[in-house]
């Protein structure tokens, strides 16, 4: 964006940094284009999983089932070493796998043509509001699972290793969702801004390498978010600390 025309860059910055315009509202909650994009992605994901599991077979016959099996098994393989145990990994699997799938889909939605310009189509993870929402879910899930598994003893980890570190520990707890949301938002939004700037400079072939990088970064960021959420939950629920 540093070499784009200021007018365009300002517009792009406004698009991402400011929350997008409300299209309509349900129960007093305004629905913006990121929300509609999320709905679209959710419908696609649920449709695919429904089609894949409708006629499920122990001998995988459909490519869709094969693909989803591959995705889920890969996610499970990633979670298992951090959780330390496949049973534990399976307990928190729905939450963490949903993070991965939804964030990945959201990141790739930003690569669609017209994303961020057409009304109702904008990468959800390119706004801080959505990533902050995800981070809030991680924050509450971490403490919920910690309390659920350890009971009142869970609060002991705030005064460990030394009681005078209590403020630092509390700050750390709040910095985690902040860094989680800012990292995801910054990466996706920054990548989109660079693509937009390159597009403004030479619209033909120049943005393609950056978009290819965007495919890689989208995957890595979804991976990192899921990994960190897993790490936090695993640390909160671990028996020995």
């Amino acid at each position: 964006m540093f070499f784009a025309t200021p007018a365009y860059a300002a517009e792009a910055a406004e698009h991402g940094a400011e929350h997008s315009q409300a299209l309509f509202s349900i129960f007093g909650l305004q629905v913006s284009s990121v929300v509609t994009t999320m709905w679209g992605l959710m419908v696609l994901i649920i449709l695919f999983s429904y089609l894949a599991t409708k006629r499920m077979n122990k001998v995988p016959e459909s490519r869709l089932q094969n693909f989803l099996e591959f995705v889920l098994e890969s996610i499970l393989e990633l979670l298992t070493p951090i959780m330390g145990d496949e049973k534990l990994a399976k307990r928190y699997f729905p939450l963490l796998a949903s993070f991965f799938i939804l964030i990945l889909a959201s990141n790739y939605a930003g690569l669609l043509p017209g994303a961020g310009h057409l009304p109702g189509l904008q990468a959800p993870t390119s706004t801080l509001s959505v990533t902050a929402g995800f981070a809030v879910v991680v924050f509450f899930a971490t403490h919920y699972y910690g309390l659920k598994t350890k009971g009142i003893k869970y609060f002991k980890h705030f005064v460990q290793p030394f009681p005078f570190l209590l403020p630092l520990n509390i700050i750390e707890e709040f910095v985690r969702p902040l860094s989680l949301s800012l990292r995801l938002y910054g990466n996706v939004f920054g990548e989109e801004m660079v693509v937009a700037s390159l597009f403004a400079l030479i619209p033909l072939f120049l943005p393609i390498p950056m978009m290819l990088l965007g495919i890689l970064f989208g995957l890595v960021q979804a991976f990192v978010f899921t990994m960190l959420a897993t790490l936090y939950i695993s640390m909160a629920t671990a028996e020995q600390h």
């Binding site: 929300v35 999320m38 994901i45 796998a97 902050a132």
Partner: peptide, 28 residues
């Protein structure tokens, strides 16, 4: 931060978790 977007994100995510748990994770 748009609080509306944030709340929608949380709702959407939780709905997705519940539905995927029913349609994808458990059966698969």
């Amino acid at each position: 931060i748009s609080i509306h977007d944030m709340i929608w994100a949380i709702i959407n995510f939780l709905v997705l978790v519940v539905i995927l748990n029913k349609f994808l994770y458990k059966p698969l």
